[in-house]
Nucleic acid binder design. Structure first.
Ligand SMILES: [Mn+2]
Ligand SMILES: [Mn+2]
Ligand SMILES: [Mn+2]
Ligand SMILES: [Mn+2]
Lengths: 218, 218
DNA sequence: CTTATTTTTTAGATTAGACTAAAAATAAAT
DNA sequence: ATTTATTTTTAGTCTAATCTAAAAAATAAG
């Protein structure tokens, strides 16, 4: 399995949540930041290897093997991100690019030992679940902040957008995973929100509140 | 710089110790486990990028840049080997293949933080020196065991052959780096040696004694 | 100083992965 | 139901890295 093949599998895996009846060639090309013709080529190769099911013009679907392999790569990505934040002095906005490289290292023992070394973490620095050794992903119950009503609150447990820009914004305003948050007011004009995070009160724009996951605590 | 280019640079770097007046194409091909024609191709590419100096039929020599880059890769290789042994539960005969992959990860911060995390180690698990951040390699004074006279002794500090087979042999006979060793007798017929390692006495063949580095302590 | 051997380079093919441009299939709009 | 627009695939080119087979250069032998 080449690095490029693994990246395509991962892309298709993530896109399957949005495109349940087959992932279109264009969507894959866009996700991979390449051209549709290149995506078609790779789709054929992956299909040839029975990693995806594919009929021309019908979009791609991961097979059992394809999905299992994608999950393995995602497991490695998230374990490495955890390593970089927990053991080295990386912040959560710096880990993605490096993990994109590390996720392709091939060694069963390495990933097993890394997992042990980290104390079998359940989530990565962005709150995303780390698949276990058998590929099982323990889905975490979470709500987008913007769905909360005034008076409701909970704990920040993840980000939907994990771009460096968003993560840095959160750092700047002292919003981190594990912090408690409560909705004090909602502004219907622009969907902004007044919230209390820890001891601070602040106003969050719609763009922010639609990208922060909360575990509701009544 | 591609992965393949880095591996060729590393190969040439190591071969330059043996071939001081230019590394022959065949030597490179053999080291890289490839064909001479492939080596010629790569030599041209590296030469084009001014990483090696090359005139047809004259062999290859690393330029300043080429050498510096090779050293960086070696630094990463040895730091990763140290990580695998010191932090994860790898033994010294299991780390090389994984480090061959990890050494190509591109991130200045990663290698800097890893070095810090490991406590700025001076040598890798095989006793080889880890180049510092500036590419300086602190050569360690060491003698091949077979050169010692009867009565001389010292401390095991490195291996010349770091094949898994040799390392496992050493493990089996409880010879590890840091252990003291003393020559009790030499057999001129087959150049075998009677030595005391720790509390044990044992006979080492010529093949063993010519692949173990000792720091002499009088 | 020729001839033979070894070493190195060239020529031509192959594979993975990407691209551009054009054709073909599907979907959307009159 | 045609026409128009979008999506997808095909055809052909390119680069890095490899290979085999053959030619050319350098070395060694007689
Ligand atoms: Mn990531
Ligand atoms: Mn993540
Ligand atoms: Mn090694
Ligand atoms: Mn080593």
């Amino acid at each position: 399995m080449t690095l490029s093949e693994e990246n395509y599998l991962k892309a298709i895996f993530h896109l399957e949540k949005k495109y349940t009846k087959g992932v279109p060639t264009n969507a894959i090309a866009e996700e991979m930041d390449t051209k549709a013709s290149s995506a078609t080529d790779m789709i054929k190769r992956l299909s040839e290897k029975d990693l995806i099911a594919y009929k021309p013009y019908q979009g791609a679907k991961l097979t059992k093997e394809g999905s299992a392999h994608a999950v393995k790569v995602i497991r490695k990505h998230r374990l490495w991100e955890s390593f970089l934040v927990d053991k080295l002095d990386f912040s959560w906005d710096e880990v993605h690019e490096v993990a994109e490289q590390l996720e392709h290292i091939k060694s069963e023992k390495l990933i097993k030992e890394l997992d042990k070394f980290l104390g079998y973490p359940k989530t990565d620095p962005h709150g995303d679940p780390i698949p276990d050794e058998n590929g099982k992903i323990h889905r975490i119950e979470k709500t987008i902040l913007s769905k909360l009503e005034v008076g409701q609150g909970g704990v920040c447990i993840g980000v939907k957008d994990s771009s460096s820009a968003f993560l840095k914004y959160l750092d700047k305003h002292h919003i981190s995973l594990g912090k408690s948050i409560k909705v004090l007011g909602k502004e219907s004009f622009d969907n902004s929100m007044l919230v209390k995070v820890g001891e601070d009160e602040l106003t969050l724009s719609s763009l922010v509140s639609t990208n922060l996951y909360i575990k509701i605590v009544k």
